[in-house]
Structure formats: C-alpha cells, structure tokens
C-alpha cells in the first residue's frame, strides 16, 4: 500500500475521499440516501483541502461525478481495481488520479455500456475461443456482476472489502479473474477482467473530454502530443520531439 500513501501526502486521493464519504454515510443512523452518492457534498472537512480543489478545477471537476454508479462501496471496488491495473508509480499518476474510474462510469452510462451498436439478439451460446463476445449481458451488467464478485470474494477470503485489501491481495484476486478461475453468472470472469483492463487503459489515455486522462497527464507521461493539426514540418526530423499536448477542447477554444 506504500504507493497509495505517497499520493495522499500532498493531496487527498480520490480513493480515500470515497472511503470517507461512505464512512460518513454509513454513520448516519437510519441510512437513507443522504450522502450516499459518490463525491456528493457531505461537508467533509478534507474535501475542502486546497490541493484537491485546485486539481479538480483544472480537471474540469464538473465531469468527475458519477453518472452510472450509485453505490459508493461498489465504486470503491472499481477505483481500487483500476489503480492496480494502472498504478501510481515513479513514472507518474495511476488510473485513479487520472480519473479512469469516472471515465468508466460515464462510458457505462452511455452507448458503450449499453452495447447499442452491437448485435445483441439471441439465441446465446458460450462459443469457442475464437468466436468472440457471446454473453447476453450488456457491459454495464458485466461491471455490476464483476465488481460485486470482486467484493464478494474479497469478503469471503479476507473478511474485508476489496478496496481495503493490500495491493498484493487485490492483485491475487484480479489474477484469478483474469485466469477465469471465478464463476460468474452470464459472463466469464476473464471476459469481465479483459473489459475492465481495456477500459482502464482507455480511461488513462482517451481525450480528457471523456472524464479521464486528467489534465492530459496520461499523454504527458507517455509522450503523446494528443491532437496536433500537422507534423508536416517535423516528420523528417531526426530529433526526438517532446511536444506539449493538445486536447479536443482546442477545436472549440
């Protein structure tokens, strides 16, 4: 967990923020929905932390709100899992700081999460290894199923929520999903893992307009200049070039 704590030094990590908010919500007798939503305004002191505020403003904080997930504990599973797939390290921020969980959340709420441009008619059969996706579940249902299973297995094995496990424990569970060792209903654990992995990478590197790749930090780490109108004058050069990235926003600026 060492790497997670590092990032909390300077600014509160989104992960802890979520845990705090759920803690507050859980502490309300009678429950109800008050404060149950991720990132809702709970008057939590830490939330006003200058670093977080500043960062959120630059990011276009308005985008970093849930449009699909409604249960903070489940969202916390997503946050933890994506962070293991693409962790914070010496090279720079991980999936969580890059907003990948919000990217995924938004994607699940839209066309991709509902498989609207894909063939979803039955009958459904499992298919061979070469016939591709054959589940009757839509992607948002795959995530509901998969994230709940990550939580369940974590509870069974370690008597703790997935988000509260040590990194290695989380990796072990994720690996068992990747290796298809976990039985899920309607979809294989391997398929869920593969979609989660791919979506995490998308969240890290897609245009910031989609809610991830905060401040184009994913691109900066990788040396990708984003949207550039032309390399006509550069492409013949022998020099390796570091170019300040541009996002889609620059089309409308």
């Amino acid at each position: 967990m060492a790497e997670q704590n590092q990032s909390t030094d300077k600014k509160m990590s989104r992960r802890r923020f979520i845990r705090n908010s759920s803690y507050v919500a859980g502490g309300l007798v009678g429950g109800g929905l008050i404060g149950g939503l991720i990132g809702s305004n709970l008057g939590n002191k830490n939330q006003d932390d200058a670093g977080t505020q500043g960062q959120q403003h630059e990011n276009g904080a308005y985008q970093q709100a849930p449009l699909y997930f409604t249960n903070p504990e489940i969202f916390a599973v997503l946050v933890a899992a994506t962070e293991r797939i693409y962790p914070t390290d010496d090279t720079g921020p991980g999936a969580n700081d890059l907003g990948a969980p919000f990217f995924i959340d938004h994607s699940l709420a839209g066309s991709w999460g509902n498989n609207t441009r894909e063939y979803m008619q039955g009958p459904f059969y499992p298919g061979s290894n070469f016939q591709g996706y054959q589940s009757p579940l839509k992607r948002h249902e795959v995530f509901d199923t998969g994230l709940a299973a990550l939580q369940r297995i974590s509870n069974e094995k370690h008597d703790a929520n997935f988000a509260d496990l040590e990194g290695e424990q989380q990796d072990e569970i994720l690996t068992s999903f990747q290796k298809d060792e976990v039985e899920l209903k309607g979809v294989t654990s391997k398929t869920f893992f593969n979609i989660l992995r791919q979506a995490t990478i998308e969240g890290v590197y897609a245009d910031p307009a989609y809610g991830g790749n905060t401040n184009m930090e994913g691109w900066k780490m990788k040396g990708f200049p984003g949207h550039q109108m032309s390399y006509y004058d550069k492409i013949e050069s022998d020099e390796f070039m570091k170019i300040e990235p541009n996002s889609l926003h620059s089309y409308t600026k």
């Binding site: 441009r117 894909e118 063939y119 979803m120 008619q121 061979s128 016939q131 996706y133």
Partner: peptide
C-alpha cells in the same frame, strides 16, 4: 469505438471455424 463503421445492432455476420461448429454472431 468505431464511430464510422457498421452498426452491428442492425446487421452482422455469423462465424465458425469449420463446418462441424455452430456459427455464432460476430457481436462486436
């Protein structure tokens, strides 16, 4: 996400490796 390509919700193909198999739709 293949914005410019075929909308498979309307039409796709089915596929199998050989005649002994059951062909299944290319869903994506």
């Amino acid at each position: 996400r293949y914005e410019l390509m075929q909308d498979l919700s309307k039409e796709t193909i089915s596929f199998r490796n050989n005649m002994k198999e059951r062909a299944l739709p290319m869903r994506q």
